[in-house]
């Protein structure tokens, strides 16, 4: 209860309060294109009272200079093979809004329009939204890690072997175990989404897409934990390795420092982490609001589903031997 629900809510509120200067979310966004012409339909989230002012630049260098000087909060580069975001320092919310816009606009840029068209999508992301998403993902990974580690202790304590002597079949037992862990994660995410939405007015985006992404995120957390728990070390060392790994993934995934404000390599690394993909997906949904499509979360879904499949498969394979006991098998 503490790790699963109370801590994430408290931390979200505390961190959001610390960055409340961004609460008004009046943002100046630079935009430039890699080609000769700036050609994109740019979907910009925001309500009338929280406008995003769009400022075009001729090239990336000019956009970067504007970001560095503080003339704009962030800039997006569209039209190339991969969109880019330029942020100066720790600006998580502008960075995430810019990134969401950049990825959505990249699709349109490929269609080669002749001018920039501003479309208000009705999305909204504030520090509170960003940190609610970030803390939800972070504490989901901790909760699932605890559950998977507990399952591993059951395996090592030969509980599975004893369960195999009941009428239940091994695949039913494994399905029950993984199902319960999955359900635990979903409940945590669901409660945090509901509480943050109802009590703090956090915007999570389109409910259906949020639900689909939540399923993939829980699966990925289960997959990562299942991989980490198979590291062949002593149990006490495994706990340490797991916690360090969780923090590392959180850092690399941008849950503390958004990679858009760091050198490009961090942005690339973040996209290889399930944490980064989850954050990317959820913040895109929050930032784009009604403009979100299934394509908005396609990449996070693909990456996290793959991690989930690999990790859970590995966990299931390693559990098979735990169903057997005997003088030779047990030792």
């Amino acid at each position: 209860m503490l790790v699963g629900l109370v801590l994430p809510v408290v931390l979200t509120v505390l961190i959001a309060a610390a960055f409340s200067r961004e609460e008004s979310f009046a943002m100046r966004l630079g935009i430039t294109a890699t080609g000769d012409t700036l050609s994109a339909r740019v979907v910009v989230p925001g309500y009338a009272e929280d406008p995003v002012e769009l400022i075009p630049f001729n090239d990336r260098a000019a956009a970067s200079a504007a970001v560095e000087s503080g003339h704009v909060d962030a800039a997006v580069v569209v039209g190339g093979p991969a969109p880019a975001v330029i942020v100066n320092g720790y600006r998580p919310v502008p960075a995430r809004v810019a990134r969401a816009i950049a990825y959505l606009s990249a699709e349109d840029a490929a269609r080669a329009g002749s001018h920039v068209q501003l479309v208000s999508a009705g999305g909204k992301i504030r520090p509170l939204d960003y940190f609610a998403i970030s803390m939800t993902i972070l504490f989901l990974t901790f909760l699932i890690w605890g559950a998977v580690r507990s399952f591993q202790e059951e395996k090592e304590g030969r509980m599975l072997a004893r369960l195999a002597a009941t009428p239940s079949r091994p695949h039913e037992i494994l399905a029950g175990k993984y199902g319960a862990m999955f359900a635990l994660g979903l409940v945590q995410v669901g409660v945090l989404i509901a509480v943050s939405g109802l009590v703090f007015g956090v915007n999570w985006g389109q409910p259906l897409l949020v639900a689909v992404l939540a399923l993939a995120t829980v699966g990925a957390a289960l997959g990562v934990a299942s991989i980490l728990v198979t590291v062949p070390v002593r149990p006490e060392r495994r706990a340490l390795i797991g916690m360090v790994s969780m923090f590392l993934l959180a850092v690399l995934g941008g849950q503390f420092f958004p990679p858009e404000g760091l050198p490009d390599v961090f942005d690339r690394i973040a996209r290889f982490t399930p944490n980064g993909q989850a954050l990317f997906g959820f913040t895109n949904l929050a930032a784009l609001g009604k403009a979100s499509t299934f394509g908005t979360i396609a990449e996070p879904l693909a990456v996290m589903s793959a991690v989930a499949c690999v990790g859970i498969l590995l966990g299931v394979v390693s559990a098979r031997r735990a169903f057997e006991i005997g003088d030779g098998a047990a030792k």
Binding site: A161, R162, A164, A165, F323, E324, I325, G326, A329
Partner: peptide, 8 residues
């Protein structure tokens, strides 16, 4: 273990 059916 074999009698209990947990070891083939």
């Amino acid at each position: 273990s074999m009698i209990a059916g947990v070891l083939r």
